[in-house]
Amino acid sequence: MKRALHGLLLLASLPLSGCALDPPLPWEKGILARPEMSMGGDPLEQRFTEHIHASKEAAAGGSGVGGGGCGCN
């Protein structure tokens, strides 16, 4: 698992460092502020989706903390 995490970190750092990236200046963030660009999204939909997947698959979590368990898994 450790090795896989290292690989992931490496992978994630690529877009942060490589190629001709052009981080936006303050007045260029109109698109980033749109609802569909947010990482979260529809809160109830997210709760449903995570709940269903957690009850049918072994893997769970990753996007936040604070959710409790349930008898379904």
Partner: peptide, 21 residues
């Protein structure tokens, strides 16, 4: 549980996030 993450605006059209938990 513990979580740590970073979210970065790469361009005016790109947002990336890495979270470890």
């Amino acid at each position: 549980q513990g979580i740590a993450g970073v979210t970065r605006a790469l361009t005016a059209h790109d947002l990336v996030q890495l979270q470890l938990s």
